[in-house]
Design a protein around this nucleic acid. Structure first.
Lengths: 141, 141
DNA sequence: TGGTTTGTTGCGACTATTCGCAATAGCAAC
DNA sequence: GTTGCTATTGCGAATAGTCGCAACAAACCA
């Protein structure tokens, strides 16, 4: 079964209605192997039809995140991207200079995560974490 | 010397012109011990005069950050706050449910920071970090 | 297949923030 | 104190994203 179909079925089984708009949005985000932002999803769909509103794209992406089928990653500086749950968890290192996004091993934060829970009783959602800084290229320049 | 005056002098010595608008914005952010957002700065100034534009507030806050006199903290979900450099560094734990912001010891991330530099050659700017999750109250509810 | 319910959509309005541009006003030199 | 240069401002327009609401259409039932 294609991943799209799994998402659609999950939505349906949770009582959500399956509309052509939702199908196209799910398809766009699932076929995109990597991260994607709302505008890119909208652009992909526009190639096929103009009958989907940008507000619907935002609403559907929110729904997918809410249902745990996708992740919203806030890169800071107003940049927000989405990825399906197929896309493994990792830390996003965002270069403040060139905008490049590096992926780092999420294991690096497991000790930090445990301490937040024990010292502050805070359950950190580290799927959503992104770290601003300078990449190696921009450090040398 | 008051902290405001230090900021003003630093700006002047870097060749920036000192306008009444800038003085009022610096005063607002410096007298506010804690974090503050652009709207709150604007509101404080509006109590005194209506002759400062919100665009100027944003521009001046950006300038202060650029000059290293203040920090912009992106809490995610569109929430951005500012603090002067007097406000010590710490990690911001943002509750996804109730919106509360807890401050955590920045030391918790020093090992992580070293590893980012050695493994990925990435110079993380941990002054800007904020972590989304659930506070203890919202976990029990 | 047709009717009913109500979740979803598109639209237009609204938010916060940014941007271009002409007018204004710091500040240095005289 | 005047003058001139140009950084800074206010304004209005543009941007991305959100929201309320009336119209529409999935999904279920007969």
């Amino acid at each position: 079964m294609s991943p799209c179909q799994t998402y659609i079925d999950t939505l349906r089984s949770h009582g959500y209605r399956i509309t052509p708009q939702r199908e196209m949005i799910v398809e766009a985000i699932a076929h995109q192997g990597d991260h994607i932002n709302a505008d890119e999803v909208f652009a992909i769909i526009q190639e096929r039809t103009h009958s989907v509103n940008i507000a619907t794209v935002y609403r559907t992406l929110d729904l997918l995140v809410e249902q745990g089928l996708a992740t919203r990653i806030d890169l800071g500086e107003g940049r927000v991207i989405y990825a399906t749950d197929q896309h493994g968890t990792h830390i996003h290192l965002v270069c403040r200079q060139c905008g490049q996004v590096l992926d780092a091993d999420p294991e690096l934060l497991s000790a930090f995560n445990r301490q937040l829970q024990s010292d502050y009783r805070f359950a950190a959602d580290l799927q959503h974490i992104s770290v601003l800084g300078l990449c190696s290229d921009c450090q040398t320049n």
